[in-house]
Every structure is written in C-alpha cells, then in structure tokens.
Simulated scan of single mutants.
Amino acid sequence: MEFRVENMTCSGCVRGVTRAIQGLDPAAEVKTDLDNRKVEVETAAPRAAVIGALAEAGFTAV
C-alpha cells in the first residue's frame, strides 16, 4: 500500500514514520521517498491500522 505523508519533511520524520509502522507490524517493509513525501508499505496490517499508527505518531497519511 502507498501513502502520501505531507508532514514528512526531514530524515527524523522518516525515522518516526518507519518506527510507527514497524511498531504496529515489526515485519513490515517500509520504503520512503522524502522528496515526494511518499511511503510504500508491505504489511499484513489493515490500511486503517497503518493510518491510525501514523496519526498517533503525529503524521497525516492519505
């Protein structure tokens, strides 16, 4: 699944996004594209759960 995270603006944000997703599913594969503010995730977790984990970490994903 792919998300756009508008408020992912630095490498610290990339770490925060990755931590939030892997906190939900430690086996998740997370690929980030900071320049385009995109996150690609391979996980067994439902999309809504990933969005929720990101929101708890302070990131808005669409």
Rank of each mutant, 00 (worst) to 15 (best):
G58C: 10
A45G: 01
L54M: 12
N36L: 13
D35I: 03
V50L: 05
D25A: 11
V50S: 03
D35V: 09
L34C: 10
T18A: 06
F59E: 04
G12A: 09
A28H: 01
P26F: 08
K31E: 13
L24F: 06
L54Y: 04
R37Q: 15
L54W: 03
T60D: 11
E2I: 11
T9K: 06
P46L: 14
F3I: 07
I21M: 03
A20I: 05
R4W: 07
E2Y: 07
A53C: 06
V39D: 05
E56M: 03
R4H: 13
V41I: 13
V30M: 04
R4Y: 15
V39A: 11
M8V: 13
T9C: 01
C10Q: 05
T60A: 14
P26A: 03
N7Y: 03
G23K: 01
P46E: 15
Q22Y: 02
A57T: 03
A57Y: 00
S11E: 15
V30F: 07
E2L: 09
N36D: 13
N7P: 02
R37G: 02
R15M: 12
C10H: 02
E42G: 09
E56H: 06
A61G: 09
T60C: 00
E42I: 12
G58P: 08
E6M: 02
K31D: 10
V50P: 01
E6A: 15
T18I: 08
A44K: 13
A48H: 01
V62C: 03
A48V: 11
P46V: 15
S11P: 02
L24Y: 04
R4M: 07
R47S: 05
F3C: 07
G12N: 10
A61S: 11
A55K: 14
D35H: 00
A48E: 15
A20N: 03
A53N: 06
A28G: 04
Q22S: 01
V17G: 11
L34V: 12
N36W: 06
E29I: 12
A49H: 00
F3Q: 00
T32E: 05
C10L: 08
R15N: 13
L34F: 11
V50E: 02
C13T: 09
I51H: 00
Q22R: 15
V14K: 00
N7M: 02
F59K: 00
A27E: 12
G52A: 15
A53F: 06
A45W: 01
V41L: 10
D25M: 07
G12K: 01
G16R: 00
C10I: 09
L54E: 02
A55T: 04
A27S: 14
R37E: 14
E29L: 12
V14S: 06
L54N: 03
R47D: 12
S11H: 10
V14N: 05
V39F: 13
A53V: 09
D33F: 13
